[in-house]
Computed example of a mutant assay.
Amino acid sequence: MPFRKLITRLSVAAAMSAGLAFQPVFAQEGYTPPDEPPADWGPVSEMMEEIEYPHPVEFMDIEHFSQEGVMAYMDVAPTGTPNGQNVMLFHGMNFGGIGFAPTIDALSEAGFRVVVPDRVGYGKSSKLDIPYNLSMFAADAKKLLDHLGIEQTAIVGHSMGGMLAARFTMTYPDTTTHMVLVNQIGMSDQRQGRPWRDIHEAAEGVRTGTSYQSILANHMRYYNTEIQPEYLEFVRMQYGQTLIDSWPKLARIRAWQQGILYFDPVVYDWQHIDTKALVLGGQDDRLTPNFAEQSQHIANTLQNADIHQYPGIGHNPHFEYPEQYHEDLIAFLSSDPDTEATDW
C-alpha cells in the first residue's frame, strides 16, 4: 500500500500565530436572519426557471425507470490560461450546481474546464418520481462526460456530493484523475442500530415537517463563522418549492434522496479506491458528531489519500474560508495524478 501522509496541515496554534480568527462567531453577533420568510419570497417552480445560475445552463436527456427527463449542467470554459484539465463538481443535498459559484470562478480562472451538473431530482434538472441511488447518479455523470467528449476528469464532491464522488471514482477509476471529498456526509453505515422507515411515511414527514424555520435552522448549521445575508438565497430556493402544487411529489423525492444515507452507504467503497484523493474542508462541521475523527477514518481507509482541514470552519468552506480553500483545492488538482496524495 502506498505511503500516506495523513495530517491536518493547519493547526489551531499555527492559525493563531498567523493572526487568523478561527473562533466561531455566530449569527447573533452579525447579520441575523429573519424569524419569518420575507414578504417578497414567493414560490419557486419545480425546475427553478426563475433562478439565475452564475453561468449558462444546458440540458442532456436522461431516462430512468421508463421516465424521461433532462439533466441540467453548466460547462464553464477556462477564463485563465487553459491547463488542459477538467473538473466535475458534485453538489450537496440542499444545494444545486448554483452553490458552487465561487469555486467555479476560482477553478476557471486557474485554467480548468469546469462541469457542474444538477443531479436528477435537484436544481434545474427533472424531478423524476423514482427510487434514487448513488450508482444512478454516477452513471448520469459518466453519460454527461461522454456527451461532452471528456475522457478524464477530477471529481470534487461536497457534502452528499462527497458520497457520489466516492461511488463515481470507485465505479469509473480510469475516468477519474483526482478525487476530493469536501465535508462529506454519510461517513458511517446508518443501518446499524436504526430501523428501516417506509418511504411513504418518510415522505409525509418531509411534507408536513418542512417549514421556513426548519430549512433556515438546517442551513445555519453549515457555518461556524458570521452568517452572511447571501446565504439565505439557498433557504429561499428551498422554501419556495414548498409553496407550489407539486410540493407533495418533491417531498417524496426528497425522502428518497435522504434515504440514500441509509440504504446506499459508501463506507464500503473507500477501500477500493486507489485514485489520488484529498479529504478537504472545515474541521468543525456541526452536521456530524465526531466529524474530525470520522473524516480521518475516510482518509485512512482510502488507498492513497491526504487530509487537509481548517479548524474553526464548518460545513461550507468554499463560503466561509474561500481564499485559502480554493488555493489548496487548485494546488491538489494541479498535481500529478500518478504521485502520492501527499505530493501537491
Rank of each mutant, 00 (worst) to 15 (best):
Q257K: 13
Y132S: 09
G92F: 00
E226D: 04
W256M: 13
Q257S: 07
T103I: 03
D174Y: 00
A14D: 15
G161R: 11
Q152Y: 09
K127P: 15
F234L: 01
I62C: 10
F3H: 07
E63Y: 06
A77T: 05
A331R: 15
Y73H: 04
R221P: 00
T301I: 11
I307P: 00
R254P: 09
L20M: 12
L261K: 06
R119S: 11
D189W: 07
M160T: 03
D245A: 15
L302A: 03
S335E: 07
R221I: 01
Q85L: 08
Q67F: 01
M47P: 12
N83H: 06
Y172D: 01
Q296S: 13
M1L: 12
T32Q: 03
D75K: 04
M163N: 07
A139P: 12
A217V: 03
Q258E: 14
N290K: 04
G84N: 02
M60Q: 10
F332C: 00
W256S: 02
S246E: 14
P54T: 11
L216H: 05
E230V: 09
R119T: 11
P43D: 08
G161I: 07
Y321W: 04
T288R: 05
D285L: 01
G84S: 09
A39R: 14
E63Q: 11
V182K: 06
M220W: 13
D274A: 12
D40C: 08
P337K: 10
Q152I: 07
L10H: 13
A141H: 13
A299Y: 11
R4N: 13
S335Q: 15
Q238M: 13
M160Q: 01
E233S: 02
D75Q: 10
S335M: 05
T242D: 06
K276V: 13
L280R: 04
R221T: 00
L10P: 02
H297R: 14
D140C: 14
D35C: 09
N316V: 03
S66D: 08
Q192E: 08
A154V: 12
Y222C: 02
T171Q: 13
D328V: 15
T339F: 12
L181D: 12
F59S: 06
F291T: 04
V267S: 07
D338A: 15
P24C: 01
I330H: 01
A13H: 01
G282N: 08
